[in-house]
Design a protein around this nucleic acid. Structure first.
Lengths: 157, 157
DNA sequence: GCTGAAATAGGTCATAT
DNA sequence: ATATGACCTATTTCAGC
């Protein structure tokens, strides 16, 4: 499969642990998976080189930093526009956290966060004016049950 | 505003830097924001205590761990069911990464990842059989332009 | 590819301003 | 609330298996 990297059971366990808590010491991870700290270190560096681990980040509580509103915005494009055309412009809006090209009667799916409903309204207005955008359909999030759950690596057959 | 924490310009800068790269040393962050390492350390601990920083995580490339398919699943519930009722069951599916309660003609919005389209089909079948679920509408992601962008903390007025 | 130990770097804490 | 310096723990590297 394209982009897929062969991971053994220990690699998968390391990836899972680091998704939950990336500041575990290599010694602690080693104790959990049955390796020395140096061996864990070597595997982690290899996972970084192979592109399995893309970045080390903090998870921020959106409400605590003033972003009270989350919305998913479905965008229909005009027939002569592609997602690749409009994505850079959507990327200029810092409120837009994700941008996907989609199949179905939607062409582009965005996830956005704003401080207030009024800010979301202004963002939608700006999105509608992006060249190539035909129309938008928004779904406002009322509450979030869970988000940012760890990905479970697939076992190779 | 509820849950909102007052952050000054330095706190916002620290949160932004750590979202991009959480393994920066406190000394390096201090150099960027104009503080000593110990002062940065104290602010970071305070941000953790206040719940602004929820976790330290790695960002994993889904394709590299075998998750080739991403989909957003819109769920309509029966009138006697709430998102809080069904969310725990959705949480039992490890493929479901996010679960939001939504306004509009959708009641619950899920983001899910599977290895193959066939696995997505099986997941949808299981979701449809969850008590309280009326119907589902799926949007399959063809390509992702960007994801996991940092949240820009809002300046208090 | 793993281990164990040595060297380096960073995190932490007490004290002072 | 921040700075300094001493201490301590983790990371990193490397020789040997």
């Amino acid at each position: 499969m394209p982009n897929m990297v062969q991971l053994d059971a220990i690699d998968r366990a390391i990836v899972l642990e680091l998704q939950k808590e990336s500041r575990l010491s290599y010694a602690e991870i080693g104790a959990r998976v049955g390796l020395s700290a140096a061996a864990v270190h070597e595997r982690v560096k290899k996972l970084e080189r192979k592109g399995v681990i893309e970045a080390y980040r903090i998870q921020v509580n959106p409400k605590a930093v003033g972003l009270q509103v989350t919305a998913f915005i479905a965008v229909r494009l005009q027939n002569d526009a592609t997602c690749a055309d409009v994505a850079p412009t959507f990327g200029d809006f810092p409120e837009v956290e994700e941008c996907h090209s989609a199949a179905g009667d939607i062409d582009v799916l965005l996830k956005a966060r704003t401080a207030t409903p009024e800010d979301l309204e202004r963002l939608l207005y700006r999105i509608k004016r992006v060249p190539g955008v035909s129309r938008t359909t928004s779904t406002v999030v009322l509450s979030t049950q869970f988000e940012n759950r760890p990905l479970i690596p697939v076992e190779p057959e």
